[in-house]
Write a protein that binds this DNA or RNA. Structure first.
Lengths: 217, 217
DNA sequence: GGGAATATTCCC
DNA sequence: GGGAATATTCCC
């Protein structure tokens, strides 16, 4: 039994905020949260417990796959009805899938509901801390931000009434630019910290190398 | 009875996304959502129903205030235990309060849990659509950003002639921001190339190291 | 799959 | 009270 999660889908205090990182730019791979996201812990524990052992019919509802490198939802219907509500505040398969995607899991079979994540493996609960939510890292900016940089031409026709409007637009663009600037500055901060770490690493490796060479003389 | 919301706190499909506005920049008050936020509807309906009529002891749990201009949670404990879970996915008073604040309600008594919102009144369910989530409209930027955005605040007194002037200033600031952006982007490009070189260097050193070790065996 | 809105939680 | 992270939902 695992009534430790949601008794009645209430009394739960694991849900939202995670004391991860606070307000620190949080560099891609560098800073590591202290504890895994609640979603990951719940999903892991749910597997350790077999979802709910069995759905009454004797068949498994959900389990690790053969080599523990992923997991399979054998019975989506029972999974939704019996398993999900005991761990989460819903019983929708799609919400569960949405979370899997958010954390970078991949569906690896078209024939059954099997999912994998490099850092989500049987016996490796400690590794969960390595899994982070996908953030929009590569092209940092929301789609609506991209436009503003190129189309400020404002094909103004009716100048009169266009005044207020264009002012509004300018203000908006301005705001977006500032937001963008902040994001760029944060990226730069991250690069700086990354560079520092790389240099440190390099110097350690070289030190290490030298020491060994010396010892062998 | 109002088991129409959360039977077992599940089966609920009203929760999250609201088909309001789509992806349209959504300027302050202009675009009006077609339907009120789920939170507002639930809170309104919960009042129409008296929370759960009474808590068994005969006393009201929650109700409109005298003139219907606000509402009072008479018994927070019962409200959490009995009312909240029937309408929401939780039983935490603080989460309920957080939502009230998000939608701009005000606590109007230090002696009891009474809340008001101009557009939240008994008999005016249609008015709920006017209530919007507080977004970070006024000072969009995190505190540490404010500096630059306010330096040009132009404490506008003489509105008339200030129009053109502020427009001019905005354009200028805009231009500067774009220039700045370009510079930041170039810095980032450099960092990327630097990172690449460092990583390459590191890998060479390590290769080198390995080879030597091997040779010395 | 993933963007984006709302909901819930945690923390100041 | 409100900022910000995670969760849940809706929609493309």
């Amino acid at each position: 039994m695992a009534e430790n999660y949601n008794s009645n889908v209430l009394d739960l205090n694991l849900g939202g905020g995670n004391n991860n990182g606070g307000s620190q730019g949080q560099v891609g791979q560098s800073l590591r949260p202290r504890c895994p996201a609640p979603f990951l812990l719940k999903t892991y524990d749910l597997l350790e417990e077999g979802g709910v052992a069995d759905g009454g019919g004797g068949g498994k509802i959900v389990s690790w796959n053969g080599d523990g490198s992923g997991f399979v939802v054998w019975s989506p219907a029972e999974f939704c009805e019996l398993t999900l509500p005991r761990y989460f505040k819903h019983n929708n398969f799609s919400s569960f899938i949405r979370q899997l995607n958010t954390y970078g899991f991949k569906k690896i079979s078209s024939k059954r509901w099997e999912f994998k994540h490099e850092k989500f493996q049987r016996g490796c609960r400690d590794m969960l801390v390595e899994i982070t939510r996908k953030k929009c890292e590569p092209s940092v900016f929301p789609s609506y931000l991209k436009s503003s940089s190129e189309e400020n031409a404002t094909t103004s026709n009716s100048m009169e009434e266009n005044n207020n409007n264009s002012h509004q637009l300018l203000m908006e663009e301005n705001m977006n630019l500032k937001k963008e600037r902040l994001e760029l500055q944060m990226q730069i901060a991250e690069f700086k910290s990354l560079e520092m770490k790389l240099l440190e690493c390099l110097s350690q490796v070289m030190d290490n190398h030298q020491n060994k060479s010396r010892r062998q003389c």
